[in-house]
């Protein structure tokens, strides 16, 4: 799983909310941060994101323009799957609305659901 730093996440946010490719200068302009990060910082961040295969890039004139490699939805879904599959301790790290369930349990739950439906 590719994990993002805080600034990386902010830059990805900019890329996801823009339809076309984004140059370093444009990304810097769209970032709403105080203090404003340096141009070279954003350049490094985008370079790192490219190295992590989070973004693709193409030449526009003398500068690189970046696009997200996958949609936010795809990325979110992957992140979510990683969280839900993580072997993290139940109860201290993450409290889930519903734990993992077995097929047998699922069948009993469906039966309960039908019974509840009939009572309506």
């Amino acid at each position: 799983m590719r994990r993002l730093g805080e600034l990386e996440a902010a830059v990805m946010d900019v890329l996801w909310s823009t339809s076309g490719p984004v140059t370093v200068r444009e990304a810097l302009g769209a970032l709403d941060r105080d203090p404003e990060p340096a141009y070279t910082t954003i350049m490094t961040v985008l370079d790192n994101l490219h190295r992590k295969s989070m973004v693709t890039r193409e030449r526009t004139g003398r500068a690189w323009a970046y696009r997200p490699a996958q949609s936010r939805e795809e990325f979110d879904a992957e992140a979510m799957a990683a969280v839900l599959e993580s072997a993290a301790d139940r109860g201290t790290t993450l409290l889930r609305f519903i734990g993992k369930i077995s097929p047998d349990e699922l069948a009993r739950l469906r039966a309960l659901m039908d019974a509840a439906e009939e009572r309506r």
Partner: peptide, 26 residues
């Protein structure tokens, strides 16, 4: 709340060979 539990549970992919924690949701 029971409906929410049932709906979310019914949409899960069941896991075979579950440890002792199983049975909680029912």
């Amino acid at each position: 709340l029971a409906r929410s539990l049932l709906n979310v549970a019914a949409a899960q992919v069941p896991v075979e060979a579950l440890a002792a924690s199983g049975g909680d949701t029912v």
